[in-house]
Simulated scan of single mutants.
Amino acid sequence: MASSSTVSVEEGLEELTLTVRWSGKEYTVRVCADDSVGELKRRICEATNVLPKRQKLLYPKLGPKLADDSLLLSQLNLKSSLKMTMIGTVEDDIIVDQVDAPEIVDDFELGQDEVVDIKDKEVNKQKLRRRVNQYKIELLHPCRSGKKLLVLDIDYTLFDHRSTAENPLELMRPYLHEFLSAVYAEYDIIIWSATSMKWVELKMGQLGVLNNPDYKITALLDHLAMITVQTDSRIFDCKPLGLIWAQFPEYYDSRNTIMFDDLRRNFVMNPQNGLTIRPFRKAHLNRGSDRELVKLTQYLLAIAELSDLSQLDHSNWESFSEDNDAKRRRHS
């Protein structure tokens, strides 16, 4: 019995229908020629729940090429109806899974021309449109009219996922609940992590984020909501806010959305809406002095009165907060 993953494809793009054998079953996966091997693994994950990093794809004629996530499927000369084998395990111990995961700390610099090229390139717009069709956001709580939107990363933004502790609360970024409670007055909150939904739900549940009486989380997004983009020299995944805007156009758009992430490349499709947060690492050493969320609370509340957040340069958020503090002191 085969499981099918249906994908809407832009007119004019070559669609590939591949069959993946795994654990005694065959799964039909539809991708496009301009997708990468990494995107193929994401689609396989959607069908099988085997995380991309746990997948080994086997097809005799391609050999080790299927191990390179950056290769485009068009470079492999894949034919529709091709059958390949996947080796991989669905793991239950998500915490072990995260600790074992390779750490990616290289937030490479992209030039301004590269950023403009990425967000304006038609192939990336097509990928975003396909993702809108493929990935449906499930609301935990209704969107609120008149509120702005805050999109938050997890790893190194809200939580130190590389350190170990007997209690996960020891790895939570200081002032997290105070931060979320304060900004909830003006912002709907969406959590978006480049990990599996199972891990997102587990970690947010352990930290008490999903059932806090002082604020509500609008939705959770995982790695399947991301898209793969490329420059002349790099291929990487990012988090396109257009996915959210397309599904909730009556509530959110580029003018009322801000995203926090410790990796700048994650908001390359919408650079005017991204704020690079200082990563929270080595929790045991830094939790006594880290006040990033306290300062960001002040910034978010200060800009909440503005009609268009996309006109701000979020890289200067600290000076904006300081200027507003000075103005308040002068008028007090």
Rank of each mutant, 00 (worst) to 15 (best):
A2Q: 08
V7C: 08
V9D: 03
L13M: 12
L13A: 12
L18A: 03
S23N: 15
G24V: 09
G24Y: 07
D34L: 13
V37P: 02
V37A: 01
I44E: 02
L51H: 10
L51G: 03
L57H: 14
L57T: 11
Y59K: 11
L62S: 02
G63D: 06
G63F: 06
M84W: 04
I87L: 14
D92H: 05
D92A: 10
I95V: 14
I95D: 01
Q98S: 10
D100N: 15
E103P: 06
E109S: 12
G111T: 15
D113K: 11
E114T: 09
I118F: 04
E122W: 05
E122L: 15
V123I: 10
V123L: 07
E138L: 13
L139R: 10
S145M: 14
K148Q: 14
I154L: 11
Y156K: 09
L158H: 06
F159C: 11
D160Q: 07
N167V: 06
L169Y: 01
R173D: 05
R173H: 09
F179K: 03
A182E: 05
Y184V: 00
L202N: 00
K203A: 05
L207A: 07
P213N: 00
T218F: 00
A219V: 11
D222I: 01
V229L: 07
L241S: 12
W245D: 07
I258L: 06
R265C: 04
L275W: 06
R291S: 08
R291I: 10
T297G: 03
I303K: 13
I303P: 09
S307G: 04
S307I: 15
L309M: 02
S315D: 15
E318Y: 13
E322G: 03
